[in-house]
Amino acid sequence: MVKVTSIDKTFESRKKRVKAVNKVSFRTEPGEIFGLLGPNGAGKTTTLRIIATLLKPNSGKAEVMGFDCMKEATEVRKRIGFLTSDMKLSGNLTPKELLQFFGELSHMESSVINKRIRDLASYLDMGDFLDKRIGKLSTGMKQKAAIAVSLIHDPEVIIFDEPTNGLDILTARTVTEFLKDYRRQGRTIIISTHIMAVAEKLCDRVGIIFNGNLVENDTLKELYTKFGDSNLEDVFFKIAEREGVTDNA
């Protein structure tokens, strides 16, 4: 279970002060996929990084399975699998060697690590490239390897930032199917995405975030009813219009 209560996060530099997250609250239960939806720079990644203990909120509280993300970061880290959107695996190690490394760091027994590698390889269809150097893999293969790395210690809570970003349709399908399967196993899953189709396919509940504010937090069904539409993209644009958000890119 993940509980986020009124978190604020402001980034300050000498030149500017940006409020990235403003009083965001939500709760995700086991067996549920919660999707954070929003345009680039809305505060999705910052929120996920706070839950993943990489950032500290200025105020508010984030908890993972009852552990405070600020005060009990190590306990939280034991229980989460985190995938960043900008992670680019590289180097001379193979996915297998990298998985062994992260398994050892999680203090897992060698036999358990090997079994877990076999399971993940089969699960994510990694058998063909498990022993190939990461530097020589395709983007999709690297993404699968990165997902496997974040799951090697069999975490209860999965936090994926834009997990299908830049993937071809086949790899994206493997990832979404895998997340659905993890939900069936009773894991708590939080993803961020700006692809409405992914959110529609995967998420039980979505939080829509604009300019650091979580403006909606409902199940898809509730959102469709509320906005009188059966398409998430249309719902999203109605909310954007209501919030006065325009494309200023």
């Binding site: 993943a52 990489l54 034991k78 985190f82 992670m87 680019k88 760091l105």
Partner: peptide
């Protein structure tokens, strides 16, 4: 630069 540091930092290792 490669974005692989956070994966290490969210691990339980000190």
């Amino acid at each position: 630069e490669r974005g692989s540091m956070p994966v290490l930092l969210v691990n339980q290792v000190s």
